[in-house]
Design a protein around this nucleic acid. Structure first.
Length: 226
DNA sequence: GTTCTAGAAC
DNA sequence: GTTCTAGAAC
C-alpha cells in the first residue's frame, strides 16, 4: 500500500509543477500517516486512508456481490443511482495510466462481468451504463455499472452528475481500443476533465436545462419507469 | 471518495 | 432569511 504511493509520488515529483507537488505531498503524507500510525484506531486499522476504500470493501465479504479468479464486484458504498456496482480486478492496477496491452483480455472480462450483473433478473427493464472515470479518486481501476435512472440521495453535486453524463465517463471499449492501438490508454487532459466536470447541468434523457442540482433531481423523477 | 460550512445566489 | 454551491480538510 505504502509502496504504491511512494512510487506514484516519485513520478509526480519528477514531472509536476511546484503547486501540484505540494498538493500531492500533502495527500502522500496523509496516506503515509495512515500506513505508519503505530496506534491506529480500530476503524483506521480496518479501512486506512479513504483512497484505499475500494480495497477494503472488496476484502469484506459483506460487500461482495460476485467474484471469480480475476475480479470482484461490489455495490458502490454511495450509489449514484438505484443500482450502482463496481467491477474491480484482483490484479493491483492502480489507475488507467497503469494499464498495459497485456491487460486487454482482463478488461474484456471486466466488461463481461459488468454485463452479467446488469442482466440479472432483479434488473429487468433497467438500462445500465458502463464506464471508467477519467480521473478516479480511489485506487484500483474500477468499472462503474450504473442504472440510468440516476435517482439517488447520494447524488448531490454537479461533479457527481457530470462524472457520469459527460465524456469524463469513459467507454470501456474506447479504453481497450486505445490500449490496443497505442499500448497505453488515451485520457483527456486535466484541463479537459475540469471542463467536463464544470459543464452546465443538463438532463441526460431530454433537453431540460435545470437551474441547479435540486431542480435536476426533481426533474429526473419524471423519467422514472418501473 | 465524503463531510462540513462560508458566503454567493436568490 | 433560506437555498445552494464550492473548496478545505494538516
Amino acid at each position: 500500500m505504502c509502496t504504491i504511493i511512494s512510487i506514484s509520488t516519485n513520478v509526480i515529483l519528477k514531472y509536476k509543477p511546484i503547486q501540484v507537488i505540494s498538493k500531492y505531498c500533502n495527500f502522500y503524507n496523509m496516506a503515509k500517516r495512515d500506513c505508519e500510525d503505530e496506534t491506529p484506531s480500530p476503524k483506521k486499522q480496518k479501512t486506512g486512508h479513504w483512497s484505499m476504500g475500494l480495497l477494503a470493501s472488496m476484502n469484506d465479504p459483506m460487500n461482495i456481490v460476485k467474484s471469480d479468479d480475476l475480479v470482484t464486484v461490489i455495490k458502490d458504498a454511495y450509489p449514484k443511482a438505484e443500482f450502482h456496482y463496481l467491477v474491480i480486478p484482483k490484479d493491483n492496477i492502480s489507475n488507467l495510466k497503469a494499464l498495459k496491452k497485456d491487460n486487454i483480455s482482463l478488461l474484456k472480462h471486466i466488461e463481461e462481468v459488468g454485463r452479467e450483473i446488469a442482466n440479472l433478473e432483479q434488473h429487468k427493464n433497467r438500462t445500465f451504463n458502463f464506464g471508467y472515470h477519467a480521473e478516479a479518486s480511489m485506487f484500483r481501476i474500477h468499472l462503474h455499472v450504473i442504472s440510468d435512472d440516476m435517482n439517488s440521495s447520494h447524488l448531490k453535486t454537479k461533479k457527481h452528475w457530470n462524472s457520469y453524463t459527460t465524456p469524463f465517463f469513459l467507454k470501456p471499449e474506447d479504453i481497450r481500443k486505445s490500449l490496443k492501438k497505442n499500448g497505453k490508454v488515451s485520457l483527456p487532459t486535466s484541463q479537459q476533465c475540469k471542463e467536463y466536470i464544470n459543464t452546465p447541468l443538463k438532463c441526460h434523457k431530454c433537453d431540460f436545462i435545470p437551474k441547479h442540482m435540486p431542480n435536476l433531481k426533481k426533474h429526473i423523477l419524471t423519467h422514472l419507469t418501473d
